[in-house]
């Protein structure tokens, strides 16, 4: 038996945190099967009525919208994140590299509210885009960008881009540049070398990036709430409304549970969908 100093002292606090987290999740699960007593914050007896209520088309619509928005956001983020990650990893010069990294990473640390607010200023009827286009005479009336799924997706792509770039860059940075050189020495042009070697070798990063982007978008609240303005509703918005407008916490809990199951299901599906990609990737 090897000696293992500090083991107990170092594991216990982490275990305590894990227990607290599991307890919080269990609380959600438990509330989801309790009855809602209007006018009271305490839940009633055990029931499945919350889940039955979720079958209404209204909620189905929100789930579908949420999944769709998450999916589109993840794909768009991948498409625009990849060139940036590639440039970041292959950039020559420490300054250029650092500058790009700071530009990409800073938004990650600004939080959802500040970033969403900035997009309101960009997209609003009196916002940047509309004022500039009006002034240039390219449009006659302001474009409706706020309260549309386009606006929500745009802002969400902006929100998820940093984490996507970081994950892709982490994968790309571990690919030896000699692979690309080898391909070129064997007659592959830069594009073919990229497609046949670098891209397949970066699939772990793509899978990690897409699933994380999906999960983060699913978790977004301020962006759909403020930019969607009630016109675009995601699961998060509904949960908040049920909790803090109607104080129907049991229903909010059941919605969260179904949302969680849905999110995990979608992520599993995404991974399965990306498996053919992984098959060409490194084993």
């Amino acid at each position: 038996m090897p000696r293992r100093p500090f083991l107990r002292a170092f594991v216990s606090p982490a275990a305590l945190c894990a227990i607290a987290f599991v307890a919080a999740m269990a609380a959600v699960l438990q509330f989801s099967v309790r009855a809602y007593i209007p006018g009271s914050l305490d839940p009633g007896g055990f029931t499945l009525v919350n889940f039955a209520a979720l079958l209404k088309p209204l909620y189905g619509r929100v789930f579908l919208d949420t999944v769709w928005i998450c999916f589109i956001t993840a794909v768009c983020t991948l498409v625009i994140g990849y060139p940036v990650a590639y440039a970041l990893v292959r950039a020559k010069g420490a300054f250029l590299k650092s500058a790009m990294l700071i530009v990409v990473v800073t938004p990650l640390f600004l939080g959802e509210v500040v970033r969403t607010y900035s997009w309101i200023v960009v997209l609003g009827n009196n916002g940047f885009v509309n004022t500039v286009l009006l002034k240039l005479g390219m449009i006659e009336r302001p474009l409706q960008l706020m309260f549309t799924s386009f606006g929500v997706v745009l802002a969400l792509v902006h929100v998820t881009l940093p984490v996507m770039v970081i994950m892709l860059a982490a994968a790309l940075s571990h690919i030896d540049p000699d692979y690309e050189r080898a391909a070129e020495s064997l007659g592959a042009g830069p594009i073919r070398a990229f497609l046949s070697v670098t891209l397949p070798l970066s699939t772990p990063g793509i899978v990690a990036g897409v699933t994380t982007a999906f999960a983060w978008t699913f978790s977004a609240f301020a962006t759909p709430q403020l930019i969607g303005g009630g016109q675009v509703n995601m699961v998060s918005n509904l949960v908040y409304q049920l909790g803090f407008a109607s104080f129907n916490f049991p229903f909010a809990a059941s919605l969260s549970v179904v949302g969680l199951v849905l999110a995990f299901g979608m992520i599993a599906l995404l991974r399965a969908g990306l498996r053919p990609l992984e098959a060409v990737g490194p084993q």
Binding site: D178, R181, A182, L186, G187, P200
Partner: peptide
């Protein structure tokens, strides 16, 4: 390089792992 008709043996071989 891809039009030079050269064969390169890299130090760490750079065999495509996939």
């Amino acid at each position: 390089p891809y039009r030079r008709e050269i064969g390169v043996l890299f130090q760490n071989y750079a065999l495509f792992p996939h």
